[in-house]
C-alpha cells in the first residue's frame, strides 16, 4: 500500500514559512508552491488513498476550540497519510472550561513534543497569537470569520484542476460573506492568482468596503450569473449572526439559491462549488449539488491533498 519514498520527492522551493496563518499575506508564488506540492502528493498517493511516510516520527495536534467534523477529520487523515502521529484536543471537557487561557493550553500541548498544531478557534487572530507564543508550527484551520487558508487553497486547487489557469477567470462567492472565513481566504488567494472575484449576497451580509480591495460587489445573482466561470456557494452561518440579516430563509433561497432554472442561464462549463456542509434547498438545490457541473466532492478529496502539502511544507520549513 505504501508509495515509494524518494529523496526530495516533493518540491519545497518557494516555501519557507513554518506557519500557515492565512492567505492574505502569502505571495502568488507561495500559494502556487502549496498547490503544486498538493498536486504531486495527490498523484503519488493514488488520489490521497495511500500513505507516503514523509512525516514519520512527528506528531500533529489538532487543537479545536470550536466544533468541526470534516476539517478535523481531513487534517487527521492527511497527517496519518504522511505517517505522523495525531492527537485530538477539543475544548469540551478540557481545562479550558476550568478557566485556563488557550495559550496555556497550547503550551501544555507543545510541552508534549508536538511538531505541528492545527488550530481552530472562534476568534479572529488567535492563530497569530498562538504562533507568537509557541515554538512549533501553527496551521490555521479557521479563526472565526477571518481566514480558513486550507479551504481557500482546496477551492483554488479544484478550480485549477478543471480550468488549468486561475488568471482571467470570474469567480463569484455567493451568500454570507460577512461571516465567512472561506470567503476571505478565497478572495485573497484568487486575487493573487489573477482571478476576477465577485462577492454576491444580501446587502446586510456583503460589505461595500470590499470594493476598496478590488473585489466586485453584487446583490443580484441573476445579474452576474451569465459572466461567472465558477460559483462558490457559501453556507449561511446562522450560528455567527447576532441579529438576523434577512427576513426569511425562503426569501434568501428565492434570491440566491442555485437552482436548475438558474443553471439554464449560466455558462455551459460553469463549476459549482460549496465548502460544505451545505443547506440543501437554501444555497443550492439537490439537482445542482448532485449535477454534472458540481465539483463538491472533488473539493473534499483535494482538501486531503492540500492539508498533506501544508503539513509537509511547514514542517520542512521549521526544521
Amino acid at each position: 500500500m505504501h508509495a515509494p519514498v524518494m529523496d526530495n520527492s516533493i518540491d519545497t522551493k518557494n516555501w519557507a514559512r513554518a506557519d500557515l496563518l492565512g492567505l492574505e499575506h502569502l505571495s502568488a508564488d507561495e500559494i502556487t508552491a502549496i498547490l503544486d506540492a498538493a498536486q504531486q502528493l495527490k498523484e503519488r498517493t493514488g488520489g490521497c488513498a495511500e500513505k507516503i511516510d514523509l512525516l514519520q516520527g512527528t506528531t500533529v495536534a489538532n487543537l479545536f476550540f470550536e466544533n468541526s467534523t470534516r476539517t478535523r477529520t481531513s487534517f487527521s487523515l492527511a497527517a496519518r497519510r504522511l505517517g505522523a502521529d495525531v492527537i485530538d484536543f477539543s475544548a469540551s471537557g478540557s481545562s479550558l472550561s476550568k478557566g485556563e487561557t488557550f495559550i496555556d493550553t497550547a503550551k501544555n500541548i507543545e510541552a508534549m513534543n508536538v511538531n505541528t498544531v492545527v488550530m481552530r478557534h472562534r476568534t479572529p487572530g488567535t492563530p497569530q497569537l498562538l504562533a507568537q507564543n509557541i515554538g512549533c508550527s501553527v496551521i490555521n484551520a479557521g479563526d472565526g470569520a477571518h481566514e480558513h487558508p486550507t479551504q481557500g487553497l482546496l477551492d483554488i486547487m479544484t478550480i485549477r484542476e478543471h480550468r488549468e489557469k486561475i488568471e482571467g477567470l470570474t469567480v463569484a462567492l455567493v451568500g454570507d460573506i460577512s461571516h465567512s472565513r472561506t470567503a476571505r481566504s478565497n478572495i485573497w488567494g484568487l486575487k493573487k492568482l489573477g482571478a476576477h472575484v465577485i462577492v454576491c449576497g444580501p446587502s446586510t451580509l456583503v460589505s461595500r468596503r470590499w470594493e476598496e480591495l478590488g473585489v466586485e460587489v453584487a446583490y443580484s445573482l441573476d445579474a452576474i450569473l451569465p459572466r461567472c466561470d465558477v460559483l462558490n456557494l457559501l453556507r449561511i452561518q446562522f450560528e455567527r449572526q447576532i441579529t438576523r440579516p434577512f427576513p426569511s430563509v425562503r426569501e434568501y433561497a428565492l434570491l440566491y439559491a442555485m437552482t436548475g432554472e438558474r443553471m439554464a442561464r449560466a455558462k455551459e462549463d460553469i463549476l459549482i462549488m460549496a465548502p460544505g456542509p451545505i443547506n440543501r434547498g437554501t444555497e443550492v438545490t439537490p439537482e445542482v449539488a448532485d449535477g454534472p457541473h458540481s465539483v463538491i466532492l472533488h473539493q473534499v478529496t483535494n482538501g486531503l491533498a492540500i492539508r498533506m502539502a501544508v503539513l509537509y511544507l511547514t514542517h520542512e520549513a521549521a526544521r
Binding site: P124, A145, H146, S178, S207, R209, W210, L213
Partner: peptide, 9 residues
Amino acid sequence: GLVSTTLAL
C-alpha cells in the same frame, strides 16, 4: 471599517 471587514472582527 475596511480593517474590521478584512479581519472579520
